[in-house]
Amino acid sequence: MSITNLLNNWSFYRQKRPFRGQYDLNKQYSEYKWAMALDLDICTGCNACTTACYAENNLPVVGKERYQHGYAMHWIRIERYWDENMGEFPESGTSFLPMMCQQCEEAPCETVCPVGATNHTNDGLNSQNYHRCIGSRYCSVNCPYKVRYFNFWNYPSTAWPSPLQDQLNPDLTVRTKGVMEKCTFCVQRLNEAKSRARTEYRLVKDGEVVPACVQACPTNAITFGNIVDPKSKVAKMWKNQQVDLYKDEQEKDSSMRGYRILEDLRPFPSVMYMERVRDMEA
């Protein structure tokens, strides 16, 4: 049985991804590919996305000491950098950047997991299966963005003292010690929307579903949607910025602000950032 299967589908099994036409409305493979566009010019660095993420995804609050020690579980984090060339006032060169799992198409973390706990879903997400995870932490080692967070402590027993456990989101699990976790683009919302759409014989509409961080952003700096649908906002933004999901080196106009982080490592991230425009003379 298996050998027949191998021989019949050999070319499918030998297909490398991402390939053009992998995500297609005509459904050769999948009619969804979730992607994000993040405009740093609009972002104020207010941390609302982080807070929303904590609430939506049952992230434990670890406390000051453990935060400093590097145990923070922020799936989306605001990174701050100071420009050292700003002389006396480095703060004036501050820049910041919300960082979450980039849902890479060619994700370095997926290949190295010994048990296959992290996989690529059909709609282009980099999934994390907590039940399968044995905690070898190899994925974190191989993640260039280091956006994977390991449960070093048994948070369920300490992070939500009664009655706080009542505010946990019932749509997803609370992770115990010894498993890796990371941003999922709020997959529980996506799956729900996809099921709802399927019962109505249609595709998920643009804007019908967004992750918690997008929902909470007061300035609408993050755009989320199905990049396969050319009419969706996120697809238009990627197109306007001339960023191509399938390319590891963009041939874009130098005036364009769009870029993907660490593209030269060829992970093909699904998140496009747009540079902040700074008036240096003012």
Binding site: H69, G70, V141
Partner: peptide, 12 residues
Amino acid sequence: GLGVANLDNPHV
């Protein structure tokens, strides 16, 4: 939990 080994993110 592995926290007692003093490993942390991303020094896993």
